[in-house]
């Protein structure tokens, strides 16, 4: 089956479950929003999906992407794209270098350059390839971060509160930008947030992750 599917996923800290067992499915082009108080393990759930869970936590349950079991795969082979609160652009690489980072190796040089430039046009930043990421505005950095993820050709998109750092005017526009691109590429999207406006804009089902850890 295609899309992203989680079955009976539980994260434990020192043996204690952070939330009740979670199951969900996201179809290609669909969005599922996960909401919950801070500290309930939303971000850790995404880290578990990515294979980068903090060693202090233990995860169980299964996750499938397009029918492929993610368990035991190293992060670099999971074909997942993720956006964090911070854009995490690599400060020592140019904008073009950042975009090229995740591009499939082995493409001819002209093809690589064309794809990077096309992504920049898409981000309304043509000709920005040689720029230092530090010289960009917050909105530009956020768009480059998304383009970098999409150029790596992921099969699902994970969003870890990527809109919360942006100011109000920018937030709505960037949210639309991300969701439109994900829909156009028919990517399943799992969105983690505590902003109800995000959930509303995403339009899909909303799950509330009840925290078991707090008394």
């Amino acid at each position: 089956m295609s899309g992203l599917a989680l079955r009976d996923v539980v994260l434990r800290l020192d043996g204690r479950a952070l939330f009740a067992p979670l199951s969900l499915e996201v179809a290609p082009g669909g969005v599922v929003t996960l909401m919950g108080p801070s500290g309930c393990g939303k971000s850790s759930l995404l880290a578990w999906l990515c294979g980068t869970l903090d060693p202090a936590l233990a995860g169980q349950g299964s996750a499938c992407l397009d029918g492929m079991d993610l368990d035991g795969l190293p992060p670099e082979r999971r074909r997942l794209g993720i956006l964090f609160q911070d854009d995490l652009l690599f400060p020592h690489l140019s904008v073009g270098g950042n975009l090229g980072f995740g591009l499939r190796p082995g493409l001819p040089r002209a093809e690589r350059r064309a794809r990077i430039e096309a992504a920049l046009v898409e981000a309304e930043m043509p000709g920005f390839a040689a720029r230092d990421p530090a010289s960009l505005s917050g909105g530009q950095r956020a768009r480059v971060a998304l383009m970098r993820v999409l150029l790596a050709e992921p099969r699902a998109l994970l969003l870890d509160e990527p809109f919360s750092r942006l100011d109000a005017a920018l937030r709505g526009r960037f949210r639309r930008f991300v969701l439109d691109h994900a829909a156009a590429l028919r990517l399943p999207v799992l969105l983690v947030t505590h902003d109800p406006a995000d959930a509303e804009a995403a339009g899909g089902p909303v799950l509330h992750l009840a925290s078991l850890a707090t008394p």
Binding site: A47, C50, G51, T52, P74, P75, E76, R78, L80, G81, I82, F84, D86, L88, F90, F101, G102, R104, R148, V149, A152, P154
Partner: peptide, 11 residues
Amino acid sequence: RLMATARLLGQ
């Protein structure tokens, strides 16, 4: 977080 980003980009 830089490592998580780079690894999910295929490295």
